[in-house]
Design a protein around this nucleic acid. Structure first.
Lengths: 335, 335
DNA sequence: TCTAATTTGTGCGTATGTATG
DNA sequence: GCATACATACGCACAAATTAG
């Protein structure tokens, strides 16, 4: 007699039964519930327990045998003879939207994971319906689900269906805290610490203004901003956009959105204000081009390349941690 | 055995039989009598019960498959894999790589096509194997296939399998000319005309240099560059990268790659050369940030937003034309 | 050595989707 | 719309190898 409980069969699924057996075995080996030399349950045991044909089980065992995972000892049993299961991964990346700094994140992830996985990219564009739809439709189709949950609430039930395969990226809603492997940005800390680190340079200016459109961007960025302003006792303002605005000497801006960055640089030039002395600019999310925008834009940014690498290593090594992605202040001439 | 009663066929009706099947299925999904993951009745069951040819049922199932509603599992059955019945189209976008100027192309496409289509995005990253694999694996699963063939050769046979559903984007290889609806860039003309239009400003400089890494970028860009140089009788050079290079006064650069653009601006600054007077820069492919890089980078660029819109209208209106996407020279202070 | 029970292994049949005249 | 050949999924019956008694 032998343990059977690592095998689960759902006949209503579209996945063929013999493949469900194979996957059960590979998963069990991956989780070390089956180890080298273990005796496998006999074909008869399995087909009786799960009401399957012997051939169905045999097909599964044959494929495992041809992969070198188990060896048959006719008249005795099958035994685990290799735990070298480099299961080919099939990964669903569900991003919020496509924008310039996703380039580095995506490409570093692909580079690190190499040919060890097939990766499909989807976007929910901050549309909750699309988010639900995509996850439901692709249930069971991937070995890992990497999700940017943005600021959605009430998604734990959907993600629960994919248990053990979900990775959270970028924003970490409170309700998901502690439940999934996560690589998140601590937006409040990032903005607060970044500004704090640049305190001396910011002190050149009279007033600090955050251009915060709201909606897509995490509110905690705003909290970090306001915490900084109050702590250093500096006059501040929060505005939604730059329409009809005239920038004034002595103002320093924190912009979260690249379209606003472009507008701001143009406004400053039109009004003959020198960036980095008359007015200051700090931009969130670094991209290569920002090093040479104007005379260089000071940025507070998470390390997107690192984030992609960590994500890949999480998936490859089945790491279950929740880690904060490193960020830094990159001082350039705009401040 | 499976429920068949959601299908109704009336041979006396003017509606074709296969469309009656499709409508029955769509209605059943709309009324939630069929839900995600449900097993569909087999082709044999339907054609026996309703005295139809296998082909009739197959035609219906194929159309449902291309709309992404059902998925085939050979040897088992068809299964409901999406309940999104309102989508007219189910589109596969196969891009070469993810980079900053794909943002505008993708987003303008999504914006124009609106909620009339489901759009899935894939990248082949200039890897021919992945390209083939993705197209073969998704054969018959979409109503339209939008492909960036880069510089691949010998792909007409693969695309032929998807006949009537293929759209070519960006680069148009010679072998595909005339066979598929296409929105392409005329790279040679673009570079040649763009430079020609900027002739007077370029004349300020002594020598023109193209930084052309090769591989990914279409060679016709280089042809356009050389044609211009010879026609205006200007000394020119083609280099692969900027490593160990010292830029000299009187040089004007044509850069196709944004990483090189960043390097070039930094090199110029390090050597104390004023961009736009001491040395000139022309960059291919405009992005919003380039308006404010240095004091504005002159670009020659196709209109990516327009390209996305045209693509959407091609698919929605089943246009079969081959059109050149408009491009323009945008003169800024770097020249 | 024989027998019964349990093991793995093989041949054949049926149903399903797929591809091609 | 019909006929045929083919790959996949699943099942039944029977043969061959091992073990316990």
């Amino acid at each position: 007699m032998c343990q059977l409980d690592f095998i689960s069969i759902d006949k209503s699924l579209s996945v063929s039964k013999y493949k469900q057996i194979i996957n059960s075995v590979l998963d069990a080996i991956g989780e070390e519930r089956l180890v080298l030399g273990d005796k496998m349950p006999s074909i008869n045991e399995i087909c009786e327990k799960f009401d399957l044909s012997r051939d169905t089980v045999l097909t599964a065992y044959n494929e495992l045998k041809s992969k070198g995972i188990i060896a048959a000892h006719p008249g005795k049993a099958y035994y685990v003879c290799s735990t070298n299961v480099n299961m080919e991964q099939n990964i669903m990346l569900l991003y919020d939207e496509l924008n310039a700094f996703k380039e580095e994140l995506y490409n570093s992830f692909i580079r690190t994971i190499g040919d060890k996985a097939n990766v499909d990219l989807y976007f929910h564009n901050f549309n909750r319906k699309i988010f639900n739809h995509l996850l439901q439709e692709n249930n069971y189709k991937y070995t890992a689900y990497v999700v940017m949950p943005a600021q959605f609430t009430g998604i734990s039930s959907i993600l629960g269906d994919l248990k053990g395969k979900v990775y959270i990226l970028d924003q970490l809603p409170v309700e998901l805290r502690g439940n999934y492997p996560t690589i998140y940005q601590n937006f409040e800390k990032q903005v607060y610490s970044g500004l704090m680190e640049a305190k001396d340079r910011i002190a050149k200016y009279r007033k600090i203004i955050s251009v915060y459109p709201g909606g897509k961007e995490p509110e905690s960025q705003l909290r970090g901003f306001i915490r900084f302003c109050k702590e250093v006792n500096m006059p501040f303002d929060v505005i939604n956009d730059l329409r009809n605005r005239s920038v004034k000497e002595g103002e320093v801006y924190l912009v979260v959105n690249d379209a606003h960055l472009v507008e701001l640089v143009k406004l400053s030039r039109n009004q003959g204000l020198a960036i980095g002395s008359d007015i200051g600019i700090i931009s969130l999310n670094d991209t290569p081009l920002k090093e040479v925008v104007a005379n260089g834009i000071t940025t507070i940014s998470t390390d997107f390349a690192k984030m992609g690498e960590t994500l890949a290593s999480f998936i490859l090594n089945k790491t279950a941690a929740q880690i904060e992605n490193p960020f830094s202040l990159i001082v350039r001439d705009s401040l």
